[in-house]
Computed example of a mutant assay.
Amino acid sequence: MLIKTNMMKKNTFQFIFEQSGVALLLLDQFGTIVFANEKFSRLSGFENAEIQDQKNILDFFGERDQNKIKSYLVNRAFQSDFANGLECFLNRRDGATKDTLLVLNDDSASNQIIATIIDVTAFRKRLTHRLRSQQHKFIANLASGIAHEIRNPLSAINTSVEILADCLSLSSQDEKLMDIILEENKRLAKIMTEFSYFARLKAPEFRLVSLNELIQELFDSYQEKLPANIQFTLNLAEKLPSIYGDHEQLRLFLKQLIDNAIEAMGEGGALTIKSKITTNNLNEKQLVIIIEDTGVGISDRDLPNITRPFYSTKDQKLGMGLTWCERIIENHFGEIKVQSKVDTGTQVKVFFPIMIPSEMI
């Protein structure tokens, strides 16, 4: 009778675990996984048979998180960090990491530990997207105001200097000073134009866009004006699905990246654009555009800042180009990843969702 009762309890326990909407583990006092539900198997990428009685919970986390979990296992005392949830990075079988919330609770009846692991990767991604969108909106409003307030005085300065230059008898030194004023005035006007363009960027008008066709159109348009010392090639996947996007914004976005790559190869080099389908950490299909150049590259110090507003390593540049690019891609629910090495080149990967995000509907 006792064996039958224990078996019923075990079956009931497993049923509750499997019906849960989150990943659950049952651990012994040393952290060995006694039972794992199907949600955890999918989250970690491991089969259930590879987990139960085979792995310790520590096997799924990095050293920083392991030390905190070990402390709990050794002390077995109430710790507010784990009762409220501790942010940990879970290592999947495929090498990817998941941003998770780990909650550990003692089951006093069985002297075991129940681990609840909540995947917050998608939530954090949406939150980051929202914060960046708010930042870009603020900058756009600021840019619009600055451009409006400065453009008229610049025009007045330019006109006044030209009139004075025509009316006055100037020495050669004075003429040089007048030329400096006019040149700097033109530079400021160019900056204001860049400001205005960023501020005027509208919400995308979504419709089906073939990125392969768009890339081919741009490729053809560059053939006559491309420097002779730069080799431009395409490697586009066949039967690439269309995405929902704003055709004109995506064209300007890709043109900006191509222009950046060409500018980085002043001494010549190779520019390649590829397209393919891949799967992200959430097991969602994505379309990827890869733009590679063999230019001067970007230093480790500058790389984290390249999409930051007003950050530029180039003279006479305002530093809004890649900020503007990032804004376009975020409005298309995509993502940009940049890898670069000085004197070797730069690779830009742009990820687009294939399915229609609910915000587009």
Results as ranks from 00 to 15, higher is better:
residue 291 I to T: 12
residue 47 E to A: 09
residue 22 V to R: 04
residue 181 I to A: 12
residue 347 Q to V: 15
residue 360 M to C: 02
residue 240 L to I: 12
residue 328 I to E: 04
residue 81 D to A: 13
residue 175 E to K: 13
residue 194 E to G: 14
residue 288 V to M: 14
residue 348 V to G: 00
residue 101 L to P: 00
residue 86 L to V: 09
residue 315 D to Y: 08
residue 293 D to G: 12
residue 131 L to D: 06
residue 269 G to I: 10
residue 240 L to D: 03
residue 345 G to H: 04
residue 330 E to V: 12
residue 170 L to P: 09
residue 361 I to Q: 08
residue 292 E to C: 15
residue 166 D to G: 01
residue 304 P to N: 08
residue 78 F to L: 12
residue 83 A to S: 11
residue 203 A to L: 10
residue 12 T to M: 12
residue 101 L to I: 11
residue 185 N to V: 14
residue 42 R to Q: 06
residue 320 M to E: 06
residue 159 T to V: 06
residue 286 Q to T: 10
residue 223 Q to F: 09
residue 274 K to F: 15
residue 306 I to H: 02
residue 67 N to F: 11
residue 289 I to Q: 01
residue 128 T to F: 02
residue 324 W to S: 14
residue 151 R to H: 12
residue 351 F to G: 02
residue 102 L to Y: 05
residue 329 I to C: 04
residue 202 K to T: 11
residue 205 E to F: 07
residue 90 L to F: 05
residue 263 E to Y: 13
residue 38 E to D: 09
residue 168 L to R: 05
residue 168 L to I: 08
residue 7 M to C: 02
residue 104 L to S: 09
residue 246 D to K: 02
residue 213 E to F: 14
residue 325 C to A: 15
residue 321 G to W: 01
residue 70 K to A: 05
residue 241 P to F: 10
residue 120 V to T: 03
residue 77 A to Y: 05
residue 86 L to A: 07
residue 359 E to T: 07
residue 328 I to F: 13
residue 174 D to G: 02
residue 96 A to E: 03
residue 67 N to H: 09
residue 151 R to Q: 14
residue 44 S to H: 09
residue 272 T to V: 15
residue 336 I to H: 00
residue 184 E to G: 08
residue 20 S to E: 12
residue 173 Q to W: 03
residue 319 G to S: 07
residue 247 H to D: 05
residue 265 M to C: 10
residue 149 E to Y: 09
residue 267 E to G: 14
residue 70 K to G: 03
residue 349 K to F: 14
residue 226 L to D: 04
residue 301 R to F: 10
residue 297 G to A: 15
residue 71 S to N: 13
residue 181 I to F: 15
